[in-house]
Design a protein around this nucleic acid. Sequence first.
RNA 1: GGCCCGUUCGUCUAUCGGUUAGGACACCUGGUUUUCAACCAGGUAAGAGGGGUUCGACUCCCCUACGGGCUGCCA
Length: 480
Amino acid sequence: MVSQTLTPPETPAAARFPMSQVVTRFAPSPTGYLHIGGGRTALFNWLYARGRGGKFLLRIEDTDRERSTPEATAAILRGLTWLGLDWDGDVVSQFDRKDRHAEVAHEMLTRGTAYKCFATKEEIEAFRAAHDSYAVFQSPWRDADPASYPALPYVIRMKAPREGATVISDEVQGIVTFQNDQLDDMIVLRSDGTPTYMLAVVVDDHDMGVTHVIRGDDHLANAARQTMVYDAMGWTVPVWAHIPLIHGPDGKKLSKRHGALGVEEYQAMGYPAAGMRNYLTRLGWAHGDAEIFTSDEAKAMFDLAGIGRAPARLDFKKLEHVCGQHIAMTPDAALLQEIEAFLVARGEPALTQGQHARMLKGMYCLKERAKTLPELLEKARFALISRPIGRDEASAAALDTVSRGILKSLTLQLQNATWEKAELESILTAAATEAGIGFGKLAQPLRAALAGRTATPSVYDMMLVIGRDETIARLSEAAD
RNA sequence: GGCCCGUUCGUCUAUCGGUUAGGACACCUGGUUUUCAACCAGGUAAGAGGGGUUCGACUCCCCUACGGGCUGCCA
């Protein structure tokens, strides 16, 4: 029988399951792309499980056949994969488990913790009209004699306690108490025999051995209802951790007008996955003053206690800063690989061997000046282009008659240089002195000649990366 | 309407009854400089409001304001 008041077990929630058995899950409904908030929820679950040698499972909540699409499922999987959040085992389809859900609903029936309700939607509306419009519906079939059951479609409703309270012990929100008279006899099995979310989620979490439910705090009230289902089946209630939702920069609920909502949009904008993980981890969670860290460090540090209770706002400036830090600390080869994947995802042509080699050679001076991949690619322009060099307006203007003359004489002087930075430095400074101009004045036409842009890496770095022949060729081209 | 949650610099946050309320991003100033960055040094900037409790409250309690969630045969 259902107890009148459901209270948390004596032992602290987190201690109910041995650490070695931590099982978390991410359970999105496939009705669109992977939302940035969903990505963070998945990240928290992943970090918690991975940091404790536990399992991170993935379940697609596709019981709503009207709104669920395979395309959305594919998009969610792509988003998670890009974020680097790997899950254990197969992806579970909730819809595939509908027979099991129905089985549990019927077991609740035999246990007397649920009942068949033959009330029609019209009757429910009539009930509300007769009471106040927010009244909790009370089914007349709750205690009806089965002998009186009509031969009509019915739903199975949870026989929820009407007195007392249901208490949730949440790792983020603390102890939250819901009066049972606020909670209705929720439907667990629809008249067409399919399960509702409230039943399916509990059955699946139980069957999958989920120990920690980390999800958005829009589910906080649901935790009370779900606790009733666990109790009705005599199952162990998991550890709850309801995390605040992410808001837009204006503090309002995140919506389309805030710009990027989908994880894949961030990928398309060229934020590196490691930077996204770092930023998202710090959004609503803190560990002292830790700001920039690797995923391994995050796994080791992450805990439920560090999760804040207030909704956090998205701040693109900080996202960029964090991403810039990660770009700078990523090993050259790995970074180049990520850039090439980015190019492919964008549908742009792959790098040629020459471009690849020059990028790798110049990565040292590129990765410390970019916050996003496109920004890095722009800085790397000098290493990617080939003659004839296309120039923007400002750089073309830098190539006036005087400058071209200087570049022309430089091509001769560079002919026999050893191509060491020190020697290039002395040649160029001497040239500037000779021309009676500061080095800055000489650097401008050099940038225009080498990259066709006015903002580039150091002229020495560019010369070193593209080599003597190409440097001289570009200077000659610009001088003519 | 009812129930529930939240509120520290502009933003993300530290603090877990006693601090000059700390860090990071952003911003401002200076430095470095070869453009753009990066980098270095310094600076501006916060406990929503009102009541309590206490020797002492950002921290505990209550009220108010504001924001959010739930209140579906959606998830």
